[in-house]
């Protein structure tokens, strides 16, 4: 809009900025807030480790085989969604749908594993959220993580429904990218949860 006269100073040309898109910034900053949220829950879990007045302790109640299996599911789903994204960018729609469904399925398997684990804890070990501090912190931390897994699965199912039999646009691809970011984040949180809950507290508790 500036039409400088000949004797007026001419501004330097504008170099375009190379930065993330608004939606990417949005997801990144949302995930930052999620980091703060989970850090609080994890810090609380750690602060209460070994402070229980009654059992069961993590060492008594938690068993590793099942959770290692579900962990493998969840972590491998991160790889799968990565390949799903790649096929989306190459325009291989069928392959994309298949891989995305696979990711969601692995997430569902993870949730089922959690359900089985919780049933064992509640029925066999009588560990409820009101039983002791371990119960309170464990169910809150693992529960909120499970909630995030659920949200991720719902998001992927929505993407699937939207994608079936349609031309996939640039906007759609960007959306899928954000779902993938979210999913990677959920997996990363699980790594920390696994290390804190199933490794550290299980080995430190009597």
């Amino acid at each position: 809009m500036t039409q400088p006269a000949s004797d007026l100073p001419v501004p330097p040309p504008i170099a375009p900025e190379r930065m993330l898109k608004p939606a990417q910034w949005g997801m990144a900053s949302f995930l930052l807030s999620e980091v703060a949220f989970f850090c609080t829950l994890i810090a609380t879990y750690v602060a209460f480790m070994g402070k229980d007045t009654v059992g069961p302790t993590p060492a008594q109640a938690l068993s590793l085989p099942l959770v290692i299996a579900t962990t493998i599911c969840l972590l491998s789903s991160s790889v799968v969604i990565h390949f799903a994204e790649r096929s989306l960018h190459r325009g291989e729609q069928k392959r994309f749908l298949f891989l995305l469904a696979g990711t969601a399925a692995l997430g569902i398997v993870f949730l089922l594993g959690t359900a089985i684990e919780w049933r064992t804890l509640i029925v066999d070990h009588h560990l409820t959220i009101g039983r002791n501090l371990f119960g309170s912190t464990y169910y809150t931390l693992v529960g909120f993580h499970g909630l995030h897994v659920t949200v991720g699965i719902v998001a992927m199912l929505i993407v699937l429904v939207l994608a079936i039999g349609r031309e996939l646009t640039e906007k759609f691809r960007n959306g899928v990218e954000l779902v993938a970011w979210y999913w990677h984040f959920v997996d990363a949180v699980w790594i920390v949860v696994f290390l804190v809950v199933y490794v550290a507290s299980r080995s430190s508790g009597a």
Binding site: T44, F48, T53, I129, S136, Y139
Partner: peptide, 14 residues
């Protein structure tokens, strides 16, 4: 609401 013990001092809460 759920009887958790985060801030329940007699049961180890803080």
């Amino acid at each position: 609401q759920l009887g958790a013990h985060f801030f329940d001092v007699p049961n180890g809460g803080s």
